[in-house]
Computed example of a mutant assay.
Amino acid sequence: MYVNGSSALSLVLTLHSLDLPQTSIYPAFIFGTATYLIILLCNLTIVMTICLNRNLHKPMYILLVNLASNDIMGATTLFPQLLYSILSQDRSISYPVCFLQGFFVHMYGSTSYLILSAMAYDRYIAICSPLRYSAIMNNENLVRIITGMWLFNFIIIFVIFALLLPYKICQTHIADLICYNPPLMKLVCENTQVNNIYGLFTLVLYHFISLSAVTFTYIQILIACVTKRQSDAKMKAVQTCGTHLVVFLFFEFNTFFPLIAHRSEYIPVYLRRVFSVSVFIFPPILNSLVYGFKTKEIRQKMFTCLKRKISSI
């Protein structure tokens, strides 16, 4: 038995085995490295394009910078440690590193919900109240939204993991491929009812906020565009809302499923593990493609930069 205090700093945990045959180690490592580099390249390209072009310093694109930065944080939380495990076949991880990984895993997931909700609100104001857009989404309000979003999220997640600190640990095997709150709670040999209640509260809170915001704003956008007579406005609204909604719902299910799976005995364990890892792979790629490269202004700025570099060579 280990006290989750000073002795926990030297505690070594074991993550669930990857079960990779010897012949699959190097292909898996190459595939994982390529996936990580693609995520970094796509999202860094979006961040640099927006930061280096003053014409893109608008609320929508600044929120997109936050989304891309958060996706980079999420991927970096998973891939370096996972790639090391694949190559070394060593699934051990120190408790402090596991604890820190879990904190950033939850920061990544919950921040994504808030940013996507803020982006939906921004589009709602831009389409439904275009004359008031500059007044509502001014620099001061945008700073408040972004600062409040990150600060609120940090406090909520900090409390989740602070509640774990006083407990005693009586197991060292993490029944998952990565560290996050539910598998960490299963290491505890005491009653964690308070943690479960708070965890469920935050789960419902984030999903309620994001689903309510996205559903309301997209419905209002569609109503506003359908009432207009311009067919191009209708098509643009349907394409924008439809694509974004599919990506959002995919992320919603991808994050919700593994958290609920830990509380159910009827969901296969392997499904929970697959979804707990896939949330760091598909959303960062899809977000960069749908919210970034598909946006006309960002594409044009990218092509302009490429042409300049090619012509200078």
Rank of each mutant, 00 (worst) to 15 (best):
N4H: 10
I146R: 04
S6Q: 08
S10F: 11
A118D: 01
Y218H: 14
V214A: 00
M60D: 05
A34I: 13
L245K: 01
A162T: 04
L41Y: 12
R273D: 14
G102A: 02
F103C: 02
F99I: 01
N70E: 12
C51Q: 13
V247T: 13
F31S: 11
M302C: 14
F251C: 15
N70T: 13
Q220N: 14
I93G: 00
T217P: 00
L15G: 03
D176S: 14
V65G: 06
F303P: 00
C179Y: 03
L63W: 04
N141M: 09
N181G: 05
T77P: 01
M185T: 15
S69T: 14
A237V: 05
L184H: 05
T147F: 12
A233M: 10
Y113N: 12
P182M: 13
L164E: 05
F303Q: 09
L63G: 07
D71H: 07
S311I: 13
V290K: 00
H173R: 10
A68Q: 02
L13S: 06
V290Q: 01
L165P: 00
P96S: 03
C98H: 00
S85C: 07
T49L: 07
F201C: 11
T295S: 09
S94C: 05
L177F: 12
T215E: 00
N254P: 03
R272N: 14
R144F: 14
I156E: 06
V3R: 13
Y291V: 08
T23C: 07
I209V: 14
T255N: 11
F161L: 02
G74P: 03
L11H: 09
Q89S: 06
P130Y: 04
T49H: 02
N181A: 11
A118V: 03
F256M: 15
T49F: 06
P183D: 06
P268Q: 10
L82G: 00
K309E: 13
V269G: 05
I260L: 15
F257G: 12
D122P: 04
P258S: 11
I62D: 02
Q300N: 10
V290L: 06
F99Y: 10
L249K: 05
R54D: 10
L114S: 06
F104L: 12
V246Q: 04
F216T: 11
L203T: 13
I145Y: 03
P258H: 08
A28S: 15
F154D: 02
C179M: 04
L131A: 15
Y2M: 11
T23R: 05
I157Y: 02
C179V: 07
L286I: 10
V277A: 08
Y270H: 10
R263W: 00
V247R: 00
C98Q: 01
N195H: 08
M60P: 03
